[in-house]
Structures are given as structure tokens and as C-alpha cells.
């Protein structure tokens, strides 16, 4: 088994042709990374958070603020390991989340709206950008896995609902429908028939959740904060494991 170690023979800045070679390599990597993170993170996200991010009527106050940050902190943590530990670039989380948003927006517009005529308001993606910026910021300032996992992971989860509220709050306005009270988001769900209905409708505002009143959302967010701290650490090590530089004799 061989292993590769970063050369310490010369750390003086390159000039002339060597600088141009180095910069050209950077640009190639930028293009590669952009499509890699859109493709890979989006697939992971669509098949784990998926429905909660696709549809406005799935954006409830019990599961949505729990599931989205929990599954959304995974790739950012893994990529932060490589970009910060190996290259001192404090932008791993923001890069991943920005790439995810590019991918989801393209799909919502061209696959949902233009192909199948779902209103774009029904399929708006949520954003995790504020949380990602804070996550990168805390890692850069602390240079610590522990601090970033506890405070960054918690911030990533806790910021999710309030930073999405300006986008989705208007869909939570109550309206009367069939002698009952529903939200505008629920109305979208009833009006645009999906093949998974009726089971696909998310009517979770019932039972004990109603008696909890306004506390359901912050409780979900704090539960997510705890889990995100753990998930961040797990994925930091997954990022470390995947960035191995080993060569094997056989596979």
C-alpha cells in the first residue's frame, strides 16, 4: 500500500507558467465540483427529504423542520472536512447548499412546472443557505470539530424554520374549505390531483399536536438541533474516510 502526502518541498507562491497551470487546474476543479455537488447532493436530498421539499402542503411544522436540516447537514459536513482541513477554504457547506439550490430550482421549473404544469408556488424549494453560511463561519472562526458540531450543527437546524418563514409563511394563511379550516398550502394539495392521493395528503394537524399549539415548531427545531450536532460529526468522519489517498494492490 502506498500513501500520498502533501509535498513540503516548496510552499513559495508559484509565478509565471506554474501559476497559470495551478490556476487552470483550479478552474477545472471548480466546474467538476459544481456538477458533482449538484448531482450527488441533490439525489441524496431528493430521496431522503424529498416530498417535504417538493410540495408546499408537505411543509408542516412537525416533520419538515426536523427532516430537512438533519438530511441537509450531511454533505456540507463531509465536504467541509476536505475543504477546510486540506485547503483552508471555509466554504464547504455554502458550496453544497448553493449547488443543491441550483439543482432543485432547475428541476422545479422545468420538470414540475413546464412539463407537468404544477404551479411553481406549489413546488418551491426550501433554503438552507443561511444555516450553511453560519456553519462555515463557525468552522472558520473556531477551527474546531467539536465547536462546529455543537453550535454550528444546532444553528443549522434552528435557523431553518425562521429563515424559510418569509418564503412559506403566506401559504399558512387559513382559509375555509368545505365547512372546514385548511391552509392555502393544503388547498394546493387538494386542488392539484396527484396519483399518490389520497394517502399522499399530509393531514397531520390532529390529535395531540393540536393541543401543543404553537410549541410544535420550536420543539421540532430543537430536536433537529440535537440530531444535527450528532449528524454533523458522523458526516465529518464520513468525509474524512472518503477523502482517503490510499492506493491498493488489488480490489
Amino acid at each position: 500500500m502506498m500513501s500520498a502526502n502533501i509535498s513540503n518541498r516548496s510552499f513559495r507562491p508559484y509565478t509565471g507558467e506554474k501559476a497559470r497551470i495551478s490556476r487552470a487546474y483550479d478552474y477545472l476543479i471548480l466546474v467538476l465540483a459544481l456538477f458533482l455537488f449538484i448531482g450527488a447532493f441533490h439525489l441524496h436530498f431528493a430521496l431522503t427529504v424529498g416530498d417535504w421539499d417538493f410540495w408546499v402542503d408537505w411543509k408542516d411544522r412537525q416533520y419538515w423542520p426536523l427532516v430537512t436540516p438533519l438530511m441537509g447537514i450531511t454533505f456540507p459536513a463531509a465536504v467541509q472536512y476536505v475543504m477546510w482541513n486540506k485547503f483552508r477554504l471555509p466554504m464547504g457547506a455554502t458550496l453544497c447548499v448553493a449547488a443543491l439550490l441550483i439543482g432543485t430550482w432547475i428541476t422545479r421549473v422545468f420538470a414540475y412546472h413546464y412539463w407537468n404544469f404544477f404551479p411553481i408556488n406549489m413546488v418551491l424549494p426550501a433554503t438552507m443557505l443561511p444555516g450553511a453560511l453560519v456553519l462555515d463561519f463557525i468552522l472558520m472562526l473556531s477551527n474546531s470539530l467539536t465547536i462546529t458540531a455543537i453550535f454550528g450543527g444546532a444553528a443549522f437546524a434552528l435557523l431553518f424554520y425562521p429563515t424559510n418563514w418569509p418564503i412559506f409563511g403566506l401559504f399558512h394563511v387559513p382559509v375555509e374549505q368545505g365547512n372546514g379550516q385548511v391552509t392555502v398550502a393544503d388547498l394546493f394539495g387538494f386542488q392539484y390531483i396527484r396519483t399518490g392521493m389520497p394517502e399522499y395528503l399530509r393531514i397531520i394537524e390532529r390529535g395531540t399536536l393540536r393541543t401543543y399549539g404553537q410549541y410544535a415548531t420550536p420543539l421540532s427545531a430543537f430536536a433537529s438541533a440535537l440530531l444535527c450536532s450528532l449528524m454533523y460529526t458522523l458526516w465529518w468522519y464520513i468525509g474524512k474516510w472518503f477523502s482517503t489517498v490510499r492506493y491498493l494492490n488489488k480490489i
Binding site: 448531482g39 431528493a46 424529498g50 428541476t107 420538470a111 412539463w115
Partner: peptide, 15 residues
């Protein structure tokens, strides 16, 4: 991977 993992993958849900 972008086209397979991002665009056409989520488009599958839409369809």
C-alpha cells in the same frame, strides 16, 4: 451525474 442524479431523478417524482 448531474443530469442523472439531479434533473432527471427528481423529474421522476414529478412524472
Amino acid at each position: 451525474v448531474y443530469w442523472a442524479g439531479s434533473y432527471f431523478a427528481e423529474q421522476d417524482n414529478s412524472w
